[in-house]
Design a protein around this nucleic acid. Structure first.
Lengths: 124, 124
DNA sequence: CTGTATCCGATGGGATACTG
DNA sequence: CAGTATCCCATCGGATACAG
C-alpha cells in the first residue's frame, strides 16, 4: 500500500493541483486561517499578522474575493470601515488548512530541528 | 466559538507560518504527495507530474532534502540512477498535505465553479 | 481607517541547450 | 538518465508616498 503503480498522473486537472492554485502562496493560508476566527476588519488583520504589508493583504483578499472564498462588505461611514467574512466555500476550504496548522502546532519540535539544520546547509 | 478575541497574533513564530515556509509553493506539495506513493526516480516523477520542469523538480527536491523531508540515494551505475524517498518526517508532513488533496478530490464541483467564475472577473 | 500608486529588488518558474 | 547552466520574463513582496 506504499506504491500506486505506474498509472497515477498528477496533471493540471488533478484536484490537488487546482486547490493549490487557490491557496499555495506565502500569505493566503494564514489570511484564511485568520478569517476563520470570525469577521475581520482590514487593519485588524494587519495587526494580527505581523510582516504582512497592506499591499499583499489587499492582494490576497482580492484574490480570495474573486474566487468566492471571502465576502467583502463596505460600510459608508467615516472613518471607513470594511468587513471581510469567509463564505460557505471559504469555511469549507478552511478545514484542511486548519488541519495543516494544527499539524504544525503538534510538530513544533520537528520544525525547530528543520530550521536548525537549515542554517548549517547551503540554501538550494 | 467563531471568534478568538483580539489576542491571537499570527507572527512569524506561529507554527503555521513556519510549516508554510516549508511547503507553500506551486510544486512542493505535489512532489511530496507523489513521493508518498513510494520511492521514486527523477524521470519517473517528471512523467507523473506533467508541466513540472527539470529545473523546478530538482529545486524542489533539493529543498526537501535540505529540510530533511526527503532522502536521496545515488547509484553509481550507467545509465545513472537516483532514488528519492520520504524520510520519517516527510511521511508525517505528508499526512496533512494528503488531507488537503483528499479535500480537493471531494470538492471538484466547487473547484469547477471557482474556475468558471474566475474567467468572468478581472484578475486582481 | 481603507485603501491606491509606484518603484524596485528577490524569487519563481519556463525554455533551451549542454554534460557525465 | 540525471542532472547543470543560461537566459528571460512574470509574479512576489517590501517600502514609501499619497488619497478619500
Amino acid at each position: 500500500m506504499t506504491d500506486d503503480g505506474p498509472g497515477e498522473v498528477l496533471d493540471e486537472r488533478y484536484p490537488a493541483r487546482r486547490v493549490l492554485n487557490l491557496i499555495a502562496d506565502k500569505w493566503t493560508p494564514i489570511v484564511l486561517y485568520c478569517l476563520a476566527g470570525g469577521t475581520r476588519r482590514f487593519g485588524e488583520m494587519q495587526r494580527r499578522i505581523p510582516g504582512l504589508s497592506k499591499k499583499m493583504l489587499i492582494q490576497v483578499l482580492r484574490g480570495l474575493e474573486r474566487d468566492g472564498l471571502v465576502h467583502r462588505e463596505v460600510f459608508q461611514v467615516v472613518p471607513p470601515k470594511t468587513e471581510y467574512t469567509l463564505t460557505e466555500l471559504g469555511r469549507r476550504l478552511h478545514e484542511p488548512v486548519a488541519m495543516l496548522c494544527r499539524w504544525a502546532a503538534d510538530h513544533v519540535e520537528e520544525l525547530d530541528a528543520v530550521e536548525r539544520n537549515r542554517g548549517s546547509k547551503s540554501a538550494i
